[in-house]
Design a protein around this nucleic acid. Structure first.
Length: 426
RNA sequence: GGAGAGUUGGCCGAGCGGCUUAAGGCGCACGCUUGGAAAGCGUGUAUACUCCAAAAGGGUAUCAAGGGUUCGAAUCCCUUACUCUCCGCCA
C-alpha cells in the first residue's frame, strides 16, 4: 500500500506513477478523493482527541473528589462526563467511517512504477532488456514438446494427477520426479552459496500474512482458500518468507536480509484454456525456489540487479536459452515498482516461457508488513523488499526436456548431474 | 478432541477498578568518574496517529486481539488467537 504522506507531499509523483499504470482521468480523481478524506480524518482525530483528553482529566478529578469525601460534587461531574461520552461516541463513528472509506480507496491503488519502467499497456510493450545473444536452437521438425517427451520416457503422468486431484496437478514419477528433486537441490545450493539463508516454511498462511505481501485483497480469487480454518494455500514462498519480517524494526546494520525457501505453489488461475496451458505450461500446483531480500532503500536497486544476475547464472548453468524483459507499466504486478521477467525458449513449442520474475517492491509491501529499520537519527523508516523466482521448477523441466532432447534420449546438463546422479534420460 | 494454567515495554517481572505519567531489575545509549577498563553514580531508553511553520513541547491510542460494564479498566465480564501442562489420538 502507498504511504498517505506521498499524497500530500508528492502528489505529482503519485499522478505520474498512476498514469504509467494507464489510469484513466476518472481513476486519477481517486488521488484527490484520498487527500480530501485524509484531511477530514485529521480534523476528526484532533476533535476526538481533545474530547478524550477532557474525559480523562475529568474522570481523574472524580476519583480525587470521591477520595476526599466530596461525593455530591463527584456525582455532579459524572453527568458532565456522560455528555462528553455521547459526543465521543458520535465522533468515533464518523472517524471510523472516514478511516474505512480511506482504506477502501488506498488498497485499490497499485505501487508506483520505478522511473525506468517503460510506458505501455500490455506484454507487447515490455522492453527486451537482454536478448539471447546466440541463435535460437532449431531442433528440426522431429522435436517433441515436453508433454510427449514426458510420456515417452515415463516422467510425468497427467492423467493420474487428474484422477487423484484434477486437471493441473501433474504427477511426476521415476526420473521425472528425481529430476525435479535434483533441480530443487541445485537451486537451493546455489542460493545458499550466494548467501541466502535457507528456510522451510509453512505452506498455508493466515489472512494477515496474505495481506502483508499484497496477495489479499488484490489476488483473492487466485488463492486456494481453506474456509473452515480461514487459511490460504500459498501462491508463492514469497508470502511466508517475507512475513518473517512483518512487524519487525531492524537496525540499518542488519541489511541485507537474504532468505530462500523451496515450496510448492498453489494457484487457481481460473479461466485459462487452450494450448498455452497444455502440459506443464500452466498448472495449479508447481514447485519453486524463491529468493527474498530486505534491503536499505538506497541499495535496493543494486540488489535487484544482483538478484537478476543470480537467476541468470542458474539458467546459464542449465544451458537454457533465455531473455530478460523489463515489464512495462501495464504489465507490472500490483505491488511491484520494477520487475524483470526471465523467459526461456521452449524449443519444441517455439515460444518463450516465463520462468522467473524478479521484483523490487520498494516500500509497498513493507508498509503493509510494518517492516522497518532505524535510520541514523533513530527514526523508523520503511525498508525495501525484493524477491525473485530462482527458479520455477515445472517450466524449467519442460524446457530442459525440450532443449536437451536428442534422438536417443535427454541429456542432463553437467551442473545438474551432481544432483541427479545420472547423465541422461532414455 | 477433553481438562487446566497463562499472554504486561528489547528481555525478566510486579500490579488484580482511581495513589500507574506501568513499580523494580536486566539490557542498551549518553554523561560523570578513570592512565584505560570494570565497578559505582547520574540521565535517558516503545510504537502509531495527531497539534504546532519548524524545533521545543503537547494530546490520543496501545498491557495478545476484538467487544462490553464503568465517571474511570492492565485490573471486572464476553468472544477469538496463541503459549504451556496433563489426558486422548498420532507420523
Amino acid at each position: 500500500m502507498l504511504e498517505i504522506r506521498k499524497f500530500h507531499e508528492e502528489k505529482d509523483a503519485v499522478l505520474t506513477g498512476l498514469r504509467k499504470r494507464n489510469f484513466s482521468k476518472e481513476q486519477l480523481s481517486l488521488v484527490d478523493d484520498i487527500i480530501r478524506l485524509d484531511l477530514t480524518r485529521k480534523s476528526q482525530q484532533t476533535e476526538l482527541d481533545q474530547l478524550l483528553a477532557q474525559r480523562n482529566s475529568k474522570s481523574k478529578e472524580i476519583g480525587q473528589l470521591f477520595q476526599s469525601g466530596k461525593a455530591a460534587e463527584a456525582n455532579a461531574m459524572k453527568q458532565e462526563v456522560q455528555t462528553i461520552k455521547d459526543q465521543v461516541d458520535q465522533l468515533e463513528k464518523g472517524y471510523a467511517d472516514t478511516q474505512y472509506q480511506l482504506q477502501e480507496l488506498m488498497v485499490q491503488l497499485p505501487n508506483l512504477p520505478h522511473e525506468s519502467v517503460p510506458a505501455g499497456s500490455s506484454e507487447e510493450d515490455n522492453e527486451v532488456y537482454q536478448d539471447w545473444a546466440d541463435e535460437l536452437p532449431d531442433l528440426g521438425p522431429e522435436a517433441l514438446p515436453h508433454w510427449e517427451l514426458a510420456d515417452k520416457y515415463g516422467l510425468i503422468d497427467f492423467q493420474l494427477g487428474a484422477k487423484i486431484t484434477g486437471a493441473g496437478f501433474p504427477l511426476f514419477r521415476a526420473k521425472g520426479s528425481q529430476l525435479k528433486r535434483a533441480l530443487i537441490n541445485f537451486f537451493l545450493a546455489e542460493a545458499n552459496a550466494a548467501g541466502y539463508e535457507e528456510m522451510s516454511v509453512p505452506h498455508v498462511v493466515n489472512a494477515d500474512s496474505a495481506y502483508g505481501t499484497g496477495s489479499l485483497p488484490d489476488k483473492e480469487g487466485q488463492m486456494y482458500h481453506i474456509e473452515k480454518d480461514e487459511l490460504y494455500l500459498i501462491p508463492t514462498a514469497e508470502v511466508p518468507v517475507t512475513n518473517v519480517y512483518r512487524d519487525v524494526i531492524m537496525s540499518a546494520t542488519d541489511f541485507p536480509v537474504k532468505m530462500t525457501a523451496y515450496t510448492p505453489c498453489f494457484r487457481r488461475e481460473a479461466g485459462s484454456y487452450g494450448a498455452h496451458v497444455k502440459g506443464l505450461n500452466r498448472v495449479h500446483q508447481f514447485d519453486k525456489v524463491e529468493i527474498v531480500q530486505i534491503q536499505h532503500p538506497e541499495k535496493s536497486h543494486d540488489t535487484l540487479m544482483e538478484m537478476l544476475r543470480h537467476v541468470e547464472g542458474l539458467l546459464q548453468k542449465l544451458k537454457l536459452p533465455y531473455r530478460i524483459l523489463r515489464l512495462c507499466g501495464g504489465d507490472l504486478t500490483f505491488a511491484s515498482a520494477l520487475t524483470f521477467d526471465f523467459e526461456v525458449w521452449s524449443a519444441a513449442q517455439k515460444r518463450w516461457l516465463e520462468v522467473s520474475s524478479v521484483s523490487n517492491f520498494e516500500t509497498f509491501q513493507s508498509h503493509r508488513l510494518k517492516c522497518r529499520y532505524r535510520d541514523e537519527e533513530g527514526k523508523t523508516q520503511l525498508a525495501h523488499t525484493l524477491n525473485g523466482s530462482a527458479l520455477a521448477l515445472e517450466r524449467i523441466v519442460a524446457c530442459l526436456l525440450e532443449n536437451h532432447q536428442t534422438a536417443d534420449g535427454i541429456v542432463i546438463p553437467q551442473a545438474l548431474v551432481n544432483y541427479t546422479g545420472w547423465e541422461r534420460i532414455d
